[in-house]
Amino acid sequence: MTFPDTAPNAVQPPEAIRIDSLHKWYGDFHALRDINLTVREGERVVVCGPSGSGKSTMIRCINRLERHEQGRIFVEGHELTDNTKDITAIRREVGMVFQQFNLFPHLTVLQNLTLAPLRAKKMPKRDAESLAMQYLERVKIPDQAGKYPTQLSGGQQQRVAIARSLCMKPRIMLFDEPTSALDPEMIAEVLEVMIDLAREGMTMICVTHEMGFARTVADTMVFMDNGEIVESAAPGNFFEAPKSDRTKLFLSQILSH
């Protein structure tokens, strides 16, 4: 994570996401205050902060599940506007994984995975299914393809959800607290899949409290509080020498427990 004016290197990968002076209000509540963030291709950003700090709202703005009121957002060079066609096109490039998995309960695991390739990409059924099986193998549950989501454990469901996003071959993945709704013994199997993904060079923004995971994969740590970015730094500096008192307080609370 870098601010354009302070970019240290001359040769850098192109920008995947750029957020300029973003503001969002819910009625009178100022949910996001002057957010500036640039994510380059292949970069892994982990966003943390207390609940209600605006982390989820920020990443939900990136694929326009939330509308922003002020500021600009660019994804792969395309600005997010009210144009529905553009938004749909951008969403196909940006995968998202939710806290509550949000699998489609009326479809089998395989159908969950093939729906978007079939409908949005008009992929032939056979191709979509072999693609789906390929990703199910990557998340290590090919044998569950014929089951319905409710027949799976939470960890399995979240892995299916990740595979579902990957089937659209997105260039960017957004994770919105992917392990918060899981039982402790299932967190590891989901994180493992995410670490694999990071190794392969996927551009990722993860909202999570899993600091071990953050240390392993993050290129950049972002700490948010009260709707603004308080601090952003490389993980080494972030964990060892946080600058802001708010960051220190947060880290002491989350690491001690």
Partner: peptide, 26 residues
């Protein structure tokens, strides 16, 4: 649930497909 709309939207399905394949069947 809202999450179903959001999951379908975030996959880049068109409005019609979201209704036809995700929301209406449920």
């Amino acid at each position: 649930e809202r999450g179903q709309w959001e999951a379908a939207d975030s996959l880049g399905l068109s409005r019609f497909d979201v209704m036809r394949y995700v929301i209406v069947p449920q």
